[in-house]
Design a protein around this nucleic acid. Structure first.
Length: 528
DNA sequence: TCTGGCTGCCC
DNA sequence: ATTCTGC
DNA sequence: GCAGAATGGGCAGCCAGA
C-alpha cells in the first residue's frame, strides 16, 4: 500500500530547517526527507520547500501575495472550523494548480475562497509554511543552492553535475526527481536544447579598475555595460525566441529585432547572450524606466529597440560553454553580419581602461564590466570572473520615518524613509534598507526611537534629525512620491551624525541632476 | 466604462 | 537590483 | 567565497467595484 506524505510532515521539515542554522544539517534533513517520500512527491516537495510552487521556466503564476493573504487572515481569524481536513502534499499542490488555472471575471474571488477554505482548515504550523510558499519566501535557509546539495546527497550524484543540470533545465523539482529516481545517467543526459532557456552567468560588483586587473591577472576583456534587459536569444533558422534573465519569453516585445536577427546572424542554430535597450535615432539610450514603457504610443517617438550581443553559448549544434571567453568572442564576431555587438576593449593599461569607462558613461550607458579572458561560461552563478563597475552618485538626505523590519531584523527599525530639503520642509524621495551593519541598525533604532513623533502601523515617524549619505545609480521620474523624483538602488554609505539637516541636498539639486541625465540619455517626453 | 489596487517581472 | 552575515 | 535573507522603484496586465 502506498502511504502518501502529509502536508504536516512537510511543514515539520520546514520547521526543523528553520531552527537549524548549520547548512550540513539542513542538507541531511532534506535528503532524508526526499528519500522517505513517495516518488511522485519528490518533484513538488522540492519546489515547495524552496518556496517556488512553479518551476523557474513556467508561465504559471498564482497572482496571490501578501495583501490578499493578509486580508483573508483578518476575515477568517474568528471562524471556527469543526471538521478539520488533513491534506497530503499532492492535494495541496493540486489546489495550487487549480488556483493558477483560474482567470477572467470572478477568478480572483474564486481564488480567495479556495485559499480561505484551505487556510481555515490547516493547523498553525502548516498554515504558516503554506503562506510562505505562496509568498515565495520560506526563510528557512534553503533556496536552490542548498537544495541542489541535498539532491546530490540523496541521489549520491556529484553536486556540480546536479547543479549544471539544473542551470540547463530550469526546473529544480524535476531535476531532483530524475536524480533520485532515474539516477546518474538521466542527469548526465541533460544537455542544452534550443528554445529551452538556460540560466545566464551573472557578474559580481567590482570596486575599481586596479582591483579588476589584479583579480584577473591583467588578462581582461572590458565591455560596455548597457542599462536594459538581459536577453538570451535562441535561433533555429527562421525561428527566433528571446528570453529574459528569469527565463521568460519576451519575443513579442520586439518583432523588428527578430527579423534583423534572422538576417544578420550567420548560423543555423545558435544561442546568444546580450542586453536589450531602447535608443533614439542618434543612438542615445532611453532611461531604463522608459524602456519598460511598452504600452505608450511609439509613433510619436523615434524609439527603436536594439540588442547588444556580448556572448555566444551555442552554435550549429555545439555547446560552447566550456570554451574560454576570448574564443567565444572570436566566434561571435565571425557570425555577426552587422548585428550590434557590445563594445569591448582588451587592455591592461589603467588609463586606457578608465577612458573606456568614461566613454561608456558619456554615451549614456551604465558603466563597464571586466571579464577574465580565459574564463568559461558558468551558468547561473555570480563569479569573480565577471566584475561590473557602474557610475554612482551620492546625496546627503535626512531620515523622516522608519519601518520595523522582519525576520532577523524584527527588533530593528531597518527601512528608512529618505527626504531632501525643499524650502523649510523635507520631501520624501525613496526608502532604503541597505548599507548598515547589524550593530548600526541597533544604534539607529535607538536613536530614531528617541526622535519618534508618532507610529502608524509599521511606520515610525521621526523628527528629521539624522542625516545619511546615500549612494544611488540614477534619479528617476516618480509617479508615487510628492517630490516627483525617486532614487534607483539607494543605499546608505555613511551616517552623518555630524551634519545638520539644514545643510542637506535639496529637491532643486535633485531636479538638476535629473535634467542633466538627458544630456546623455534620450528623452521620451521630448516629442510628445 | 473607468479607476485603483494588487501582483509579477524587469532592474 | 545591493548589501550584510553565517557557514 | 557562496548562499540566503531583507528589502528598493517603475511599468504592464488583470481584476473588482463604483
Amino acid at each position: 500500500m502506498i502511504i502518501s506524505t502529509s502536508f504536516y510532515e512537510l511543514s515539520r521539515l520546514c520547521s526543523k530547517l528553520e531552527s537549524e542554522s548549520k547548512t550540513i544539517k539542513k542538507i541531511d534533513l532534506i535528503s532524508q526527507f526526499l528519500l522517505n517520500i513517495q516518488p511522485n512527491e519528490t518533484n513538488i516537495s522540492i519546489l515547495l520547500i524552496t518556496g517556488k510552487i512553479f518551476p523557474d521556466r513556467s508561465e504559471k503564476t498564482l497572482n496571490i501575495s501578501y495583501k490578499t493573504i493578509h486580508s483573508l487572515l483578518k476575515k477568517s481569524s474568528n471562524q471556527q472550523v469543526l471538521f478539520k481536513k488533513t491534506y497530503n502534499i499532492i492535494e495541496i499542490y493540486e489546489e495550487f494548480q487549480k488556483m493558477a488555472r483560474l482567470s477572467g471575471k470572478g477568478s480572483y474571488n474564486q481564488k480567495k475562497s479556495i485559499l480561505t477554505g484551505i487556510l481555515t482548515q490547516l493547523p498553525d504550523i502548516e498554515r504558516k509554511f503554506l503562506i510562505r510558499m505562496i509568498l515565495g519566501e520560506m526563510r528557512i535557509g534553503v533556496s536552490s543552492g542548498v537544495m541542489l546539495l541535498a539532491i546530490a546527497k540523496a541521489s549520491n550524484i556529484d553536486s556540480d553535475l546536479i547543479k549544471n543540470a539544473y542551470m540547463i533545465y530550469g526546473d529544480l523539482g524535476r531535476i531532483g526527481e530524475l536524480a533520485i529516481h532515474k539516477g546518474f545517467n538521466a542527469i548526465k543526459k541533460i544537455d542544452i536544447k534550443l528554445f529551452r532557456p538556460i540560466k545566464p552567468m551573472l557578474a559580481e560588483m567590482g570596486v575599481s579598475i586596479p582591483e579588476i586587473l589584479e583579480e584577473n591577472n591583467q588578462n581582461i576583456i572590458f565591455e560596455y555595460k548597457y542599462d536594459g534587459i538581459r536577453v538570451q536569444i535562441h535561433k533555429n533558422f527562421e525561428k527566433i525566441k528571446i528570453y529574459t534573465r528569469k527565463l521568460n519569453d519576451i519575443s513579442e516585445m520586439i518583432p523588428d529585432l527578430l527579423s534583423r536577427l534572422k538576417n544578420e546572424i550567420d548560423s543555423t542554430t545558435s544561442i546568444l547572450d546580450g542586453e536589450l535597450v531602447a535608443v533614439d535615432k542618434t543612438g542615445k539610450p532611453f532611461p531604463f524606466q522608459d524602456l519598460m514603457r511598452t504600452n505608450i504610443d511609439r509613433t510619436k517617438t523615434d524609439l527603436q529597440y536594439k540588442i547588444f550581443i556580448f556572448d555566444i553559448l551555442y552554435l550549429n549544434g555545439k555547446n560552447l560553454l566550456n570554451l574560454p571567453l576570448k574564443e567565444r568572442k572570436e566566434i561571435l564576431s565571425k557570425i555577426s553580419r552587422g548585428f550590434d555587438l557590445a563594445k569591448t576593449l582588451k587592455s591592461s593599461d589603467p588609463e586606457e581602461i578608465k577612458e573606456f569607462f568614461q566613454s561608456s558613461i558619456e554615451s549614456g550607458h551604465e558603466g563597464m564590466i571586466g571579464k577574465k579572458a580565459d574564463s568559461l561560461y558558468y551558468l547561473g552563478t555570480r563569479k569573480k570572473d565577471w566584475l561590473k563597475l557602474k557610475e554612482d552618485f551620492s546625496l546627503d538626505l535626512v531620515i523622516i520615518a522608519a519601518e520595523w523590519g522582519s525576520g532577523r531584523r524584527k527588533e530593528w527599525l531597518s527601512n528608512y524613509h529618505l527626504a531632501a530639503k525643499e524650502d523649510n520642509s523635507y520631501r520624501m524621495i525613496g526608502k532604503t534598507f541597505k548599507g548598515l551593519t547589524d550593530e548600526e541598525f541597533e544604534q539607529m533604532t535607538e536613536k530614531l526611537l528617541s526622535l519618534m513623533i508618532k507610529q502608524e502601523k509599521n511606520v515610525v515617524f521621526v523628527q528629521p534629525k539624522v542625516v545619511v549619505e546615500v549612494v544611488f545609480n540614477e534619479i528617476q521620474r516618480s509617479p508615487k512620491y510628492p517630490s516627483q523624483y525617486a532614487l534607483r538602488f539607494a543605499r546608505i554609505k555613511n551616517i552623518r551624525y555630524d551634519k545638520s539637516p539644514k545643510d542637506i541636498d535639496t529637491i532643486d539639486d535633485i531636479k538638476r541632476l535629473y535634467q542633466n541625465k538627458f544630456i546623455k540619455k534620450a528623452d521620451i517626453l521630448k516629442n510628445r
